[in-house]
Design a protein around this nucleic acid. Structure first.
Length: 209
DNA sequence: TCTATTTTTCCTGCTT
DNA sequence: AAAGCAGGAAAAATAG
């Protein structure tokens, strides 16, 4: 169900519920032990601003799933507006405006197969700056060079996403190596746990894509 | 359901 | 010695 369908069916609370469900969905498969998971259900019923803020902080990073930077921003905007509503404050008018033309747009890109690929998964972890408890870090942002800081933790996370609890870095890295031939990754030798996005990898640059 | 990709598993050997 | 890296093979999972 899309956000707009959901809100239509659920009324005013729809947006909040939708967002929380998305959050749960993400946490359910990838979050929990990595990211201290807050009880998002509780948050729908109370108005403690501090809690809402902390919820907001990690929610927008995941609730729109694997999407473009644009989607991420929209989601952030959406959450910000929600916080305002909940605090009984008038939402920032620019946010409202952005929200209004968000919904129709998100319906346009019908065919977006939820970034299911490993390299996209890696990329999206990298693209979530605030949140990403030192799993992977950019070595050279503009060149697309990055390094695994917690190789096994990332593998575990990937395993969670694929519903495979026996994923290991050893196996994950084999899949990474297959990307060299397809030029989704370029080889970086000498440095352990270091990879570099290749010309067939999309959406990792600072700007666009 | 069939096919083409992708990913997972496992393995042997080599490098840091 | 432990953890990574290289790829080959082949099975399993997915996308379309």
């Amino acid at each position: 169900m899309s956000l707009q369908e959901f809100t239509q069916a659920a009324g005013t609370a729809g947006q909040l519920l939708y967002s929380n469900l998305q959050h749960l969905k993400w946490n359910g498969q990838c979050g929990s032990d990595m990211y201290q998971s807050h009880n998002v259900i509780v948050k729908t019923e109370q108005t403690d601003p501090s809690l809402m803020v902390s919820w907001k902080e990690d929610n927008y990073l995941y609730d729109s799933g694997y999407g473009s930077t644009v989607e991420l921003l929209d989601s952030k905007t959406f959450c910000r507006a929600q916080i305002s509503m909940i605090n009984h404050q008038p939402p920032d008018s620019s946010d409202v405006k952005k929200l209004q033309d968000h919904t129709p747009k998100s319906h346009t890109k019908k065919h977006n197969p939820r970034g299911t690929h490993l390299w996209e998964f890696i990329r999206d972890i990298l693209l979530n700056p605030e949140k990403n408890p030192g799993l992977i870090k950019w070595e050279d942002r503009s060149e697309g060079v990055f390094r695994f800081l917690k190789s096994e933790a990332v593998a575990q996370l990937w395993g969670k996403k694929k519903n495979n609890s026996s994923m290991t870095y050893e196996k994950l890295s084999r899949a990474m190596r297959y990307y060299y031939k397809r030029e989704i990754l370029e080889r970086v030798d000498g440095r352990r746990l270091v990879y570099k996005f290749g010309k067939n990898a999309r959406g990792w640059r600072e700007n666009e894509n």
